[in-house]
Amino acid sequence: MAHIGNGSELVILEQVKKHYPVTGGVFRRQVGAVKAVDGVSLAIHRGETLGLVGESGCGKSTLGRLILRLERPTAGKILYDGRDILALSRDEMRPLRRKMQIIFQDPYSSLNPRQNVGRIIGEGLVIHKVGTEQERLDRVRHLMNVVGLRPEHINRYPHEFSGGQRQRIGIARALALQPELIICDEPVSALDVSIQAQVINLLMDLQEEFHLTYLFVSHDLSVVRHISDRVAVMYLGRIVELADKAELYRNPLHPYTQALLEAAPIADPDRKKQRQGLTGDLPSPLNPPSGCHFHTRCPKAMEQCRHAAPRLKENGDRHWIRCFLYGDEVDETLG
């Protein structure tokens, strides 16, 4: 794979699959599988923000959880800083866990309501036995300052904060152990518009200050465009397009990417609405369409799209595309 392997990668995924078994009948036999992630190969470069977009159920959050080894893939390889994290024991994994953190979408349910802010932010420090109690307290106060919370609120509980402030608590918690990689899973989707901008700015400032690498998972195309360096588009478990941000938004190749961009509402009443739009719903990942998963909704579907899955291949400079419109190669690894 040419988009993998020039030495700057922090994370490399090779043919990663996550299939959840579905059981049925009296004997709970496996009757099928949800292919949440279906053969994803991807690299995240040090210091970059890789945007990952797609609709609900496309597997984008599962992909984030696989990288953190919160879930184990069914097949494939995940390398973090050159090490195969799936081969590591729990003890070997522990120092790596400090380096990768996650920020969740919902700042209401991702914070323990019975713990005060100091405990929430400092919990990782305690678990990893960092410093003395006083040093930990100082670090928590410092982190609160960094993310724009008032350190004197260290003894308050999550319900005493607004949604945006709670997301700042989640960010401070993620920063506590000085990570290299942060998986941002829809971090601003639950926030009000005026607060979203504050949190996006904060994430960008922190990236610069602490040299962070982000995997930014979101369904919001304009937020992803704003914050990312490269963008990957996912549909039913597969990456269908991947390119530098400017290239992807200016020259989307995959019919699905084109439809997504067309569907996104734009705050400009003068823009001509040229929505031909997609018909139909996202198919169930339990029983996805044969061949190219998108052929049931694709305005340009051809006969071969029904029978075989196209291979992800480079079409022009660093622009990766999985579609028969741009070549006939079949992906033999996908059933």
Partner: peptide
């Protein structure tokens, strides 16, 4: 989702 939102608004 956005593609469904577009259909409903239309």
């Amino acid at each position: 989702d956005v593609t469904i939102q577009a259909q409903i608004l239309e």
